[in-house]
Design a protein around this nucleic acid. Structure first.
Lengths: 266, 266
DNA sequence: ACCTGAACACCGTTCAAGT
DNA sequence: ACCTGAACACCGTTCAAGT
């Protein structure tokens, strides 16, 4: 399947001679079809930077190797010297995006466990909703973490777990709680993002017919129709997310209370 | 963008003369490149059936118009007479898949609200986990419902809502509860499915390095490392799902209790 | 009214070669 | 050691035509 006879340069290694060679070939005339790129004038970082530029001005879906090559003004094949496949390029982009995400995610300290957890996942969601590229790379692809990604991720998770355990949750309950909240939050993000992406693709004639359009629906679906007037059908706005988050945290609080019959006073 | 000068036959309409024409052209020799298909020997249903056959023996990802044409032994272009685009074909498949799903989803009646809700979403998840095609079409695509789909969906939702409202939830609280549970369940399914799909695509050298591999991790992540030995990192097995479901239902129970200070006795 | 092959503009990837 | 264009096998979609 993946017989890669193509030599792939390890992403981290750098050519030291880059600058001198670049100086040699500066200001060449662009009369010909394309000026041959100077050796070392490109590296994995530059490709990655170009890929992010391209993707930010269009979308992750629109990323293709020919388009990226054109954007970078290199031959398509050149990219394959640095990244063995498009998948590998996307993996590298995802790793970078995850780092960017953790830079934006604040540390939460000195808060009660329930506020900590709510603030963490609200902020988690906010960042990805604000940046489609981050969302498409990190949330919509279940990435294979690099060792660095793993450490960042574990650091953040352990931070939340500490608060939960300090509040009285067992190690087991704390881990379960974290992942339940994580699945809920990522589920919310994925559903909203997919909804937007398919809406862009679809032709507008397939309009979603609302519950209110047919008067018979008021009798057939009394509860749903009652609510349909005041909320979106997809149920993924901020209030809906918060409501679910509150329910989850309330469940955790109740489970904690029944687990600790005698309240701690220290 | 979508200038469709191609005539698209409405999917529901049928040609009555189908059978007689098929009889005419039966048993033609297959000497030539391809025997020209008899008029009316194909319809939207047959294409849809063929598409499901193909997809069930491979995967939804592997569906392409040329492949489907070959499978049906027709020219590629023929499919476009019945479906304006691949997207439209997938929409029709999704609608059929959703019906199939509702046929398999049992009705839950005469149960306490918490058992009802748990049984509903456990069964919901079980069906999609058992059938990848259903999952890829219904869960991984946020489909634009047909009117029939909408009715089936609303029927099922209203069924759950009735139980919740009968138990004392307000209309508003019932709808919030339903969608929170739905987002959690679909999130769980999407994460697991994406995980499997990307694992198939990736080359095996990117093995997930576990927490246990590095002994230093025991000190750095005491809580996480303690749990890592006894559970999967992705946290999406049956026990994890049930645990989150219990937490959600416990949160709902607690919210209901504080909303109804005086317990009902009837 | 239905079905056809040839063709178009794209895609990811590889080859055999230039410097 | 790096960068190149040409080519391959695919894809979704359209054209101009057959019957």
């Amino acid at each position: 399947m993946c017989r890669s006879r193509v030599p792939i340069r390890a992403f981290g290694t750098r050519t030291q001679a880059t600058e001198t060679i670049m100086a040699q070939s500066a200001d060449q005339p662009k009369t010909e079809r394309r000026v041959r790129r100077a050796r070392g004038s490109l590296d994995g970082q530059a490709i990655l930077r170009g890929a992010f530029e391209l993707v930010e001005s269009t979308s992750v879906d629109a990323l293709s190797m020919p388009r990226l090559a054109k954007h970078l003004n290199v031959g398509v094949t050149t990219i394959y010297w640095y990244f063995g496949s498009k998948e590998e390029l996307l993996d590298a982009m995802t790793a970078a995006a995850l780092n960017r995400f953790y830079e934006r995610l604040p540390q939460f300290r000195g808060m009660p466990w329930n506020d900590h957890v709510k603030a963490f996942f609200r902020e988690f969601r906010r960042i990805f909703r604000e940046d489609d590229v981050l969302c498409d790379l990190v949330i919509m692809r279940v990435n294979h973490f690099t060792p660095e990604n793993l450490r960042s991720t574990w650091d953040r998770i352990e931070g939340v777990l500490e608060t939960l355990v300090a509040a009285g949750f067992s190690n087991d309950a704390a881990v379960e709680a974290y992942f339940t909240l994580s699945v809920y939050t990522r589920g919310n993000l994925m559903i909203e993002r997919l909804f937007i992406l398919t809406a862009e693709r679809a032709n507008p004639k397939n309009m979603q017919t609302g519950l209110q359009s047919n008067p018979g629906n008021r009798e057939r679906y009394p509860i749903l129709a009652d609510q349909a007037t005041r909320r979106s059908f997809s149920m993924i706005d901020d209030d809906d997310f918060d409501s679910g988050l509150d329910t989850l945290v309330e469940g955790l609080r109740s489970q904690l209370a029944s687990q600790l019959p005698a309240p701690q006073t220290d």
